[in-house]
């Protein structure tokens, strides 16, 4: 399995991480997985909510050495 593309949104205030994801995801093939690194506390709420509103898959949260990461898969 290939590692997901990483979108580094650390230091960005909401809604910027959501906007960055919304710009990047359509450029990737359906089925692609991305990891959004975001340390703004609102990202943990807004990234899953965006996925729900846009019909994309929120895979889960990963807390690693780079801080909180949020995995999203393009579904449509």
């Amino acid at each position: 399995m290939t590692a997901p593309e990483v979108i580094d949104c650390r230091g960005q205030r909401c809604p910027l991480p959501v906007i960055t994801l919304a710009r990047r995801l359509p450029e990737l093939p359906v089925g692609a997985l991305v990891r959004v690194l975001a340390d703004d506390p609102a990202a943990a709420v807004d990234l899953p909510a965006w996925c729900r509103l846009r019909g994309q898959e929120f895979v889960g949260r990963v807390d690693g050495p780079d801080g909180p990461g949020f995995d999203v898969r393009r579904r449509r």
Partner: peptide, 24 residues
């Protein structure tokens, strides 16, 4: 209830608990 409007810069715990969009 958006985080940028609160003194703590955290999103509303109510919106977070509901799992709904907190910005805007």
């Amino acid at each position: 209830g958006s985080s940028c409007t609160s003194s703590t810069l955290r999103p509303s715990h109510v919106l977070a608990a509901m799992g709904v969009l907190s910005h805007g």
